[in-house]
Amino acid sequence: MTISIHASVNGEPCQFQCGTTDTLLKVLRENLQLTGTKQGCGTGDCGACSVIMNGELVCACLVLAVECGQADIRTVEGLSSAGQLHSLQQAFLDNAALQCGICTPGLLMASKALLDKHPQPDETQIRYWIAGNLCRCTGYDKIVRAIMGCVS
């Protein structure tokens, strides 16, 4: 038996079926086929599944799908609009801030949440804010530079 949940995903109304032990991550990836949100650990320790839920940055692996009734959920798939990349997406490309790219969706969502709340972070603030997003390829240097490049 599954439960029907109504939520908003990337600004579109959305309905999905889930079980009580299903996570938001599972629903996004398997029910809604939004595989841009990645699973790296399942325990909230890597940040690869970062999404913005009701304006707050969360790990989708630590949210139950049944909690998401009426929630506003934003994933990497909704970051660009009308074929125009978000300035963070462009900055990540221009700064070569990704190597393998698996952490990139989570880092983009984390960076967006940062700039939404603190439009002018310094390097230290950026580093602490994205500390929940592991990247094993880049050593973070170019990621931090990309975010700094988007500071208004």
Binding site: R29, E30, Q33, L34, T35, G36, T37, K38, Q39, T75, V76, E77, L79, S80, L85, Q89, F92, L93, L98, G101, I102, T104, P105, L108
Partner: peptide, 16 residues
Amino acid sequence: GVDKVTGRARFGADMQ
């Protein structure tokens, strides 16, 4: 690059 910053690139667990 664009595939990877928009979540469209498909990794090992993304195939169904």
